[in-house]
């Protein structure tokens, strides 16, 4: 079994790193390349860069940025945000991304997963799933949790795996931004039902939350943003705590 991975997530708008706190009050926390290099040398196992630019210029800036990240960073990195076609994925692969993540576009067009995976390999495709609990059922949402779909989390996750996703990144929209931890039972059920790795996203408020989702929740990796960006805990400190909790991590 590979070590459990710790993945800082960097939101990028117009070439600059930002982090939404409950999707409001964006604060600039620096240059994406420098911040990523800092995380890599601190022991991050991978990085995720999400482009939250809405404009065409922003997208162009992001592609250029991906090239600069690839030139500098010596660990794997995933990019996402606004990928809705095989061409978008190809452009980011050519710029040097190791993986891409798709979310709403996969829901709108599930065949996109199949197309990208069959052309560039399973290891290149991370499908992000946002869901929330509605009347006892985990329903898949899109557009940052604002739109409810007819899909059920576990069925959708299995379809995503069957279509060729290499990993699933699951966010509970009920927990995202709350910093009160992850729904570990749901994660454990999801991990048990799949044979591809699951990345836990959204909800980490402390090292204990991350330890819980990697042990009780059986997740293969944990993605976090604000607890790193605001230096509440450093990656070496987090990994030390996970190691003390008996979790296998790269140190």
């Amino acid at each position: 079994m590979p070590a459990k991975r710790i993945i800082p997530c960097l939101d990028v708008k117009d070439g600059r790193t930002v982090k939404g706190i409950n999707f409001e009050g964006l604060a600039d926390v620096g240059d994406p390349v420098e911040l990523g290099a800092r995380y890599a040398s601190a022991g991050a196992d991978e990085l995720v860069y999400l482009d939250i630019s809405a404009s065409k210029e922003g997208r162009h800036t992001f592609t250029e940025l991906v090239g600069r990240i690839a030139a500098r960073i010596n660990i794997p990195f995933t990019v996402g945000g606004g990928i809705s076609s095989v061409e978008d994925a190809a452009r980011l692969l050519d710029a040097g991304a190791d993986k891409i993540t798709i979310n709403s576009a996969a829901v709108a067009n599930p065949d996109l997963i199949t197309q990208i995976s069959s052309r560039y390999g399973r290891q290149f495709v991370v499908v992000a799933i946002d869901a929330k609990l509605v009347d006892g059922t985990w329903r898949v949402t899109t557009h940052g949790g604002s739109r409810l779909t007819g899909l059920e989390l576990f069925a959708w996750a299995r379809e995503v795996e069957k279509r060729g996703a290499g990993e699933i990144m699951f966010t509970s929209m009920d927990h995202d931004g709350t910093r009160h931890g992850y729904p570990c039972e749901t994660f454990a059920r999801l991990c048990d039902s799949l044979s591809i790795p699951v990345i836990a996203s959204g909800g980490a408020g402390s090292a204990e939350d991350i330890a819980d989702v990697l042990s009780k929740g059986k997740a293969d990796a944990a993605l976090a943003a604000s607890i790193f960006h605001y230096c509440e805990i450093t990656i070496p400190e987090l990994k030390e705590k996970l190691h003390e909790a008996g979790i296998s991590v790269r140190r």
Partner: peptide, 15 residues
């Protein structure tokens, strides 16, 4: 071989 707890592909950091 995919068996309980063994994921394929082997993806990630190993010693």
């Amino acid at each position: 071989k995919e068996t309980t707890g063994v994921k394929v592909p082997n993806m990630g950091w190993s010693p």
